[in-house]
Design a protein around this nucleic acid. Structure first.
Length: 563
DNA sequence: GCCGTTTTCGGCCCGACTGTTTTCAGTCG
């Protein structure tokens, strides 16, 4: 059985939670959380690393390195099992309740023998909690409410499309130029937890407008207001215009990035917070209306939001060696669209026209192959007719249709169409659409045999994940990326907000190794062409430069690359 | 438990908000 980074991170995280409930040293606890976070965010598996290699990773020392080795060998570690044996397992679920942390759990457990959410509900209903020191009526009500929320929704994250709908509802209530959406939304993450907005107007002047667009007001304060909009949490933070830069920086995060920046400030004798920078010895607050001024004050280059993850960008900004990222100006076309020849809505002439309107040089028409029954896929014969129509349409349009296909990768790694048919096409995308539950080794070999096929140019949505619906397939991405580099095959960044596949970390790994990325919207409908922006954000988060992305090539360069 | 061109010991990001309190603990982001 493979030990994934996620699995290791979960064990370390669990250790942190258990130690919290036990009331251990907070810095020891933090060390476990930090190590878990570091492991979880690493692009390549740590399973094969020895203790020396592990402890050279920042945030992992000798002790945790040894525990990771133990997890790889046995699936757990001795100290974890020891701590776990003294604490009832359901206690941990209590931590997922809003407003309930380790101290609360610990007190409830020791004083009232509350071991589960059901226990807590019973005690709260019988008003036995208010009798405890430090607890009262409000706390009891809060617990009941938190339990209700917990049961109602195991709160999933939003897709970017959903986040855009929430933002689109809130921002008309705000005045242009007075606000910025911050948080993971601004960083371009593939999914978003809640929406954070920084606003340079005062609470009193704007709150009535916000009330109108909200389903519910959660909190109202002088410094921040929390709303529920379209069922999602929106936090609005008020800032004086003169302090807007530091507030925006703070609320954009990521948390790890903020901590790194504060450490840099400390190293220079300053204290950084959301109001500005204080001189630790002389006092006095220096304010920043823009983020650019703040970065400059700290001697750093401006770090775009997409890079703010503490993946090495802070050091690069200090050394003035930040990478050049791909931008929308360099995108010359969409490398994955469907037509009405199969399950798409637009005919080829309509596609070409839509491409024109987007200012594209080309669109890669990649309909499904016949093996995928549901979408009336193309066979060799219909591909020939389609090729003929493509030729006709291209004569009348400035946006050129590149004739391709999205061919199925079958369970055994073979392709859904004969090589003879594929060889006729300009570009071939190969994707997995079935048999997602194969084990890791089989799935990896399946993808690699598609990569090795001489006709395949791009692997479509390589992990197959669909947000909130389907987990990514088990796959050895290192091996896939290595083989893609050796064969000159590109990997897709599927820009559908439900997929965003590959995601940022894998894009980063691929680019580091010299594998090209193809951004494709997988559009079946004209409204989906705009999704290209989501894919672009993910690529930028993966540190992709213009040279890493196939869509920056001119049509003739692209066709040459594919041949 | 982790970390280090000022440190191998003594630090570890910082503030808002709530509910419980007469000055603070706990939780959250």
């Amino acid at each position: 059985m493979d030990i994934t980074n996620r699995f290791i991170a979960e064990k370390l995280n669990l250790m942190g939670q258990l130690l919290e409930i036990r009331g251990e040293n907070v810095f020891k606890i933090r060390a476990f959380y930090r190590a878990a976070d570091v492991i979880d965010r690493m692009g390549s598996p740590v399973e094969g690393l020895d203790e020396t290699a592990l402890s050279s990773i920042s945030g992992i020392g000798k002790a945790i390195a040894a525990k990771i080795r133990e997890i790889v060998k046995t699936g757990t570690f001795e100290e974890l099992e020891e701590v776990r044996s003294g604490i009832p397992e359901p206690l941990i679920e209590l931590l997922s309740l809003e407003g309930v942390g380790p101290k609360t759990v610990s007190t409830l457990w020791k004083k009232l023998n509350v071991q589960s959410i059901d226990d807590l509900e019973r005690e709260a209903r019988n008003h036995r909690i208010r009798a405890l020191k430090g607890f009262g009526e409000k706390k009891e009500e809060g617990f009941m409410k938190a339990i209700a929320i917990h049961r109602e929704q195991s709160t999933g994250r939003m897709t970017r499309a959903e986040a855009d709908r929430v933002v689109g509802r809130v921002t008309p209530a705000l005045h242009p130029g007075t606000f910025e959406v911050a948080g993971s939304y601004r960083r371009g993450k593939s999914s978003v937890g809640d929406i954070d907005i920084v606003l340079s107007e005062s609470a009193s002047s704007i709150n009535p407008d916000l009330r109108r667009v909200a389903d519910e007001i959660i909190d109202v304060g002088e410094k921040k207001t929390s709303l529920k909009v379209l069922g999602r949490r929106v936090d609005v933070r008020f800032s004086r215009p003169g302090q807007f830069g530091s507030m925006l920086l703070y609320l954009t995060g990521s948390k790890a990035f903020n901590i790194k920046l504060r450490e840099i400030a400390i190293g220079k004798g300053y204290k950084l917070n959301e109001y500005g920078i204080e001189d630790r010895s002389r006092g006095g607050l220096r304010e920043f209306a823009t983020e650019e001024e703040l970065f400059s004050f700290l001697g750093m280059d401006y770090v775009v939001p997409e890079l703010r993850e503490d993946w090495g960008e802070v050091e690069r900004a200090v050394a003035h060696t930040l990478p050049e990222l791909v931008t929308d100006r360099e995108i010359r076309g969409d490398l994955h669209v469907h037509s009405s020849w199969t399950d798409g809505k637009l005919s080829l002439p309509e596609l070409a026209q839509a491409g024109d309107e987007k200012g594209y040089e080309y669109l890669l028409c990649s309909d499904h192959s016949a093996t995928l029954g549901i979408s009336h896929g193309l066979d060799e014969k219909s591909l020939k007719s389609q090729a003929h129509e493509v030729e006709l349409v291209n004569r009348a349009s400035s946006c050129q249709i590149i004739h391709g296909i999205e061919v199925d990768i079958m369970a055994d790694g073979s392709l859904g169409l004969e090589s003879r048919a594929l060889a006729e096409l300009d570009l071939v995308i190969a994707s997995v659409h079935s048999g997602f539950t194969q084990d890791r080794d089989v799935m990896t070999r399946r993808l690699i045999s598609a990569i090795e096929n001489e006709n395949v140019d791009i692997i479509g949505h390589p992990t197959g994940r669909i947000m909130g619906r389907r987990q990514p397939v088990a796959i050895d991405m290192d091996r896939v990326i290595d083989r893609a580099r050796e064969t000159g095959t590109a990997l897709e960044c599927n820009a559908s907000p439900h997929r965003l596949d590959l995601d940022d970390l894998h894009i980063r790994e691929a680019c580091l190794k010299g594998v090209r990325i193809a951004i494709g919207t997988d559009a079946h409908d004209p409204s989906e062409f705009g999704n290209i922006g989501y894919g672009l954000l993910i690529c930028r988060r993966g540190w992709a430069g213009p040279g890493d992305v196939l869509n920056t090539l001119h049509r003739n360069e692209l066709l040459e690359w594919a041949s």
